[in-house]
Design a protein around this nucleic acid. Structure first.
Lengths: 201, 201
DNA sequence: TTGAAATGTTACTGACCGGTAACTCTCTCG
DNA sequence: CGAGAGAGTTACCGGTCAGTAACATTTCAA
């Protein structure tokens, strides 16, 4: 690991602080290879830094993981808001835009949701990263539920649960049926059917 | 790990072969704690055996993992068939029974699907356990698809994909929202709505 | 220019990992 | 009884892991 060092992308690489480089490297490596599979040494190496610098900026590997999860959480909600923004005031369009966006994201990020993958590896109840993930997922469920109430669905909580399960299923099934012909493509069509069934008449 | 040894369940413990004990211990520990988190030493210890006996019966940890996955696969299809059996000839009842059974299973097995969890940790493309898992999931999708065709759904493949995603989502979300109030409970209701929408008129 | 903070370098610790060698014990079955 | 298979015991290998100590160097701002 950390072999070639072919990243000669002009100036910015050394312009960023070592802390930022380590952080980015950690996010990337944890996502691509899994948390337990990536050692702190290879993170430092990939960031063109050293293990000492890593430990000067993060108290432990676990806290580095937690920091990465917090960043993924921030990224996620920024993305979420950007998807909803064009359809402000039209909750049904927002729901459909969300499901389409999730479907597209599944095609672009072949390892699915970084937080969902992490939670499988972080089964220790008190891992500092777990709380971040759990809160992220709870909030997704809440927001979906709120949207479903806005469209006056017959059973908003059940509809929200359905959409939530579909999203998680789409993410996780990418790790199994990677590449071609994933069921995640059907996400928008399925959502349309479900929503229609919950608001008809 | 491997502390108390309070398993004084009469005779059968020492009556079974060491191989079987190791196998059962591995299945259990891998499921409860994750594959990378469990060392071969603790498997042997939990099975009241030794590491040498483990390696005399399994060529490597990876092959032990693969063997466990094959067994999970066998268990899964036996369970699947037992759910379908009471409703032979009535594919719609079979589908509903399946979804209800998945929902119940999610309450009883708080760590979800052992194969789904494993595939997150086994991202090496050539891991001997991966093929077993991928084939299991492909077959689920096929069988769901076949059932959806039997009930003459308008779009059987999309309906099958929806049910598949819901199942996987229900499994994986157990690891996040463990315990109370999981969306998996809504599985039968959601399935009913979806199926109804796909066969009306 | 100077001084402090950030970063790099090297070497190390103790623990655990997967896997093996060589030898002994115990049980079953012919 | 005797032999052989299955299983236990102990000690070991080389590698990797997370984390630390002590010291040298760079960077940058006052």
């Amino acid at each position: 690991m950390c072999a070639a060092k072919n990243n000669e992308t002009a100036v910015p690489e050394s312009r960023r602080s070592a802390r930022d480089r380590i952080f980015e490297a950690a996010k990337d490596l944890f996502y691509r290879h899994g948390i337990r599979a990536v050692g702190v040494e290879s993170i430092a190496c990939e960031a063109d830094a050293t293990k000492m610098t890593l430990y000067r900026n993060f108290n432990s590997k676990d806290e580095l993981v937690a920091a990465c999860m917090r960043d993924h959480d921030r990224d996620f909600w920024a993305w979420w808001d950007s998807v909803l923004a064009p359809h402000t005031g039209d909750p049904q369009a927002q729901l459909m835009a969300l499901m389409a966006a999730f479907s597209h994201q599944c095609e672009e990020q072949p390892r699915g949701c970084p937080m969902l993958n992490a939670v499988v590896e972080l089964q220790e109840e008190d891992h500092p990263g777990r709380a971040v993930i759990v809160q992220n997922k709870l909030r997704i469920r809440e927001r979906l539920s709120a949207l479903c109430r806005e469209i006056e669905a017959h059973d908003p909580d059940t509809l929200a649960d359905a959409l939530y399960l579909l999203i998680e299923g789409a993410y996780i099934s990418l790790l199994v049926l990677k590449g071609s012909d994933t069921p995640a493509e059907a996400l928008p069509r399925i959502a349309e059917t479900l929503i229609a069934a919950h608001i008809e008449q």
